[in-house]
Design a protein around this nucleic acid. Structure first.
Lengths: 245, 245
DNA sequence: CTATTATACCAACCATCGGTCTATTCTCAA
DNA sequence: TTGAGAATAGACCGATGGTTGGTATAATAG
């Protein structure tokens, strides 16, 4: 009987897609390799042909996230029409947009994706995103310091703080969901928006700018994206994955 | 033959000690339960008499860290001789001291303890530490806002930022070690001290204080503690734990 | 067209993992 | 002395991530 051979590069993407869905719903640890290959309809041998290990799969997933997030940001740096503050704001908005859309994409998974069992997954994603964004950030801040827009003695440090703030939003949402009496989206979004305002002012002051200079995307942006997707179809992922004792 | 029975409460501590050493050297995931009980010279049955699971062991370990870190801090909050800024500085110094001494305690493990495989362990420790410190921090900041010392609209948010800064020092050291050409202690400490200075100024500005108000422990403190312990005996932990491929 | 090699794939198999279970030994108060 | 319960031992379990030996297809060379 003839064997059906799909295009190899698509096979790999398919594996990544199924892994992403499973990791987001159940967490990297709980979703077993067998679950992934079963979902993708692929044998173990095939999997290990494309990836060296489960770890490598996670890494590839994080890289893909980072690559997508970075898409279209490179040109911001070189745009001569923007001053350093404009560049920084543009980059922050882009970065935030990527984060929000990633979360929104997995909206049906909102409650599960912010649970501690997904720690490893999100750490990797954030790590990859940092690695991609950080050099751009440092360069922009350096330019700003050079032309007197920003005032700081440690551009790398400030860039790290900015990335920290970005990562911390994940924890903010997690707290709002887990700690809230009714764990709904509105509570989470409200907490998130408030925190973003604080981060903006904190960055203003750290960089010696007047309050209100830094704008990490438009106010209400998170709510808009989230609610738009909320109405969308719920991705029902039938789960046969065990509960941990 | 007579059985040697140790005091039960000591048995539990002993288990924690061996687990701590193994988790720090090889990471929570890689150090197996069998490794732990083998190191402690205890049977599996005995282990599961004291702990409900490997998770519970990790949790107990994190709790112990947090408890040690919190020791002697409670009275800072009630001390009437201190103003809010004094209280905040005292708390920060205490928090930092705990972190540094934890790191120094595991000095022989310096290179391994900052590797990604220890992510889970440190996340738990930081979580426990946050849970312990955060309420104190929020209260102090609230007091300061009330009497006009601090200026912010979001005390909880600022407290979170402070905790973030504390946790981030871990990453700073990791980067200095992993990224540096010669991964030595001096590079790491230097990077750490510089970053702490940045955090101090950032907090000054976020809270609307004049630069130099916040002092997270004395300058040079990290170096002093680290170098003091460096000369100490190297804890040679014979490792039979497998390498992950 | 055939021979050869590299790629894509399969599924049985493995060591080890965290965790359970039953049996036994020890401790100490009544 | 004895009985109850705490403490300990270690065989055992299902599941896991990972390995292996082998097969089928595609690409290429002669």
């Amino acid at each position: 009987m003839p064997r059906i051979i799909k295009h190899p590069e698509l096979r790999r993407e398919e594996l990544l897609n199924h892994a992403q869905a499973l990791f987001l719903t159940h967490g990297y640890d709980r979703a077993s390799l067998n679950d992934v290959i079963a979902a993708a309809g692929v044998s173990k041998g095939a999997f290990y042909h494309y990836f060296a290990s489960k770890e490598a799969l996670l890494e590839a997933l994080a890289e893909r996230f980072a690559r997508q997030a970075l898409a279209g940001v490179q040109d911001v740096l070189g745009d001569p029409a923007l001053d350093p503050l404009g560049r920084l704001n543009a980059l922050l908005a882009k970065s935030r947009q990527a984060r929000v859309e990633t979360a929104a994409e997995a909206w049906a998974l909102f409650e599960t994706m912010f649970r501690p069992e997904n720690l490893v997954l999100f750490h990797r994603i954030n790590l990859a995103a940092s690695a991609a964004f950080s050099p751009l950030l440092v360069e922009i801040i350096r330019q700003g310091v050079a032309d007197g827009t920003f005032h700081t003695f440690d551009p790398e440090g400030v860039a790290d703080i900015v990335m920290q703030f970005g990562m911390a939003t994940h924890d903010v949402v997690a707290k709002a969901i887990v700690g809230g009496s009714d764990a709904d989206m509105d509570t989470a979004i409200e907490a998130l928006e408030k925190r973003v305002r604080l981060y903006e002012i904190a960055l203003d002051r750290i960089l010696g700018l007047p309050d209100g200079s830094i704008r990490i995307g438009e106010p209400g942006y998170v709510r808009a994206v989230m609610t738009a997707r909320r109405a969308g179809p719920t991705a029902a992922v039938p789960s046969k994955i065990r509960k941990r004792s």
